[in-house]
C-alpha cells in the first residue's frame, strides 16, 4: 500500500496552487524515494518537475512503485477543502483506481475523506540533460513575482540579462518599455532578501511572460527563487519546498525568427 502523511497540509495546498495554472493532468510517481512528477503544459513550452522526498513526510510508506494519473483541477478542489492547520494523508492500495485524501483537524475532532478517481495517462518522460549554467541567480521570490507582474503589462515577452553587475529584466510593447535592474546585495544582509549572482558568462534570453507569471504562483513555497540560465537553453526557475523537496520549472526561450 501507499500512505504519505504531512502534518502541514498547507505545503501540499501550495504545491497544487503552483502547478494548476500549467497542468490539467499529471502522473504522480510514488516510490520508496518519495513522490515525483514531471509534466509539460499543453503547448509543450514549459516543463514542471516536482520532487517530494519520502524523508520529508511525517509518515511515508510505499510498498511498490505506483504511477497515479490525477486530474490537477480535481486534486486542487480537494486540497482547497483542507484547512491550513489540517494534517493530510494520501492513501492508495496496490494497483489503485482511486486515491484517498484524509484531512484531520489539529485536535482530531474533524476528519474528512475525499476519494478521487485516477486516470490513465500516456506518460511522456523527458530526459533533462545535466547543464552547467552560465548564470545562476538567487533572489527574493516576491521580488521576482512582482517584476514578472509589472513587466508583463508592457509586453508578452520579457528579456532577462545577467552580467556581473547584476540582473536586468526588460519588456517592450506598444505602450513603451520597462526595465528593472537588480544589483547583487552585500553578503552580510538578510539571506531571504539577498540577490546573489554567480556568473561564468553573461547571458541574455527572452521568455514568455505568461509562463513566468504561472511559475511565480509557487512564490508562497519559498522566500527565494533560483534562476539558472545559459545561452539558447531553457530557463530553470526553482523553488525549494521546505525540508521536503523542490519544484523546478523549465521554460523554452523565444528566439529570433
Amino acid at each position: 500500500m501507499f500512505e504519505a502523511r504531512l502534518v502541514q497540509s498547507v505545503i501540499l495546498k501550495k504545491v497544487l496552487e503552483a502547478i494548476k495554472d500549467l497542468l490539467t493532468e499529471a502522473t504522480f510517481e510514488c516510490s520508496d524515494c518519495g513522490i515525483q512528477l514531471q509534466a509539460m503544459d499543453n503547448a509543450h513550452v514549459s516543463l514542471v518537475s516536482l520532487n517530494l522526498r519520502s524523508d520529508g513526510f511525517d509518515k511515508y510508506r510505499c510498498d511498490r512503485n505506483l504511477s497515479m494519473g490525477m486530474s490537477v483541477p480535481c486534486m486542487s478542489k480537494i486540497l482547497r477543502c483542507a484547512s491550513s492547520e489540517d494534517t493530510v494523508t494520501l492513501r492508495a492500495w496496490d494497483n489503485p483506481d482511486t486515491i484517498v485524501f484524509v484531512f484531520e483537524s489539529p485536535n482530531r475532532d474533524k476528519i474528512s475523506e475525499y476519494e478521487m478517481k485516477l486516470i490513465n495517462l500516456d506518460q511522456e518522460h523527458l530526459g533533462i540533460p545535466e547543464t552547467l549554467y552560465s548564470c545562476v541567480v538567487k533572489m527574493p521570490s516576491q521580488e521576482f513575482a512582482r517584476i514578472c507582474r509589472d513587466l508583463s503589462q508592457f509586453g508578452d515577452a520579457m528579456t532577462i540579462a545577467c552580467s556581473k553587475e547584476g540582473i536586468k529584466f526588460s519588456a517592450a510593447g506598444d505602450y513603451g518599455t520597462a526595465n528593472v535592474k537588480l544589483a547583487q546585495t552585500a553578503e552580510t544582509e538578510n539571506q531571504e532578501e539577498a540577490v546573489v549572482v554567480e556568473m561564468k558568462e553573461p547571458v541574455k534570453l527572452t521568455f514568455s511572460c505568461r509562463y513566468l507569471n504561472s511559475f511565480v504562483k509557487a512564490t508562497p513555497l519559498c522566500a527565494q527563487v533560483q534562476l539558472s540560465m545559459s545561452a539558447e537553453v531553457p530557463l530553470v526557475c526553482e523553488y525549494q519546498i521546505g525540508e521536503i523537496g523542490h519544484i523546478r520549472y523549465y521554460l523554452a526561450p523565444k528566439i529570433d525568427d
Binding site: 509539460m40 503547448a43 509543450h44 513550452v45 523554452a252 526561450p253 523565444k254 528566439i255 529570433d256 525568427d257
Partner: peptide
C-alpha cells in the same frame, strides 16, 4: 519578431 521554442526541442523523450 521572436518565435517560441518548445521544450521538446531541447529535452529528448526517454
Amino acid at each position: 519578431k521572436m518565435a517560441q521554442r518548445t521544450i521538446t526541442s531541447f529535452f529528448t523523450r526517454t
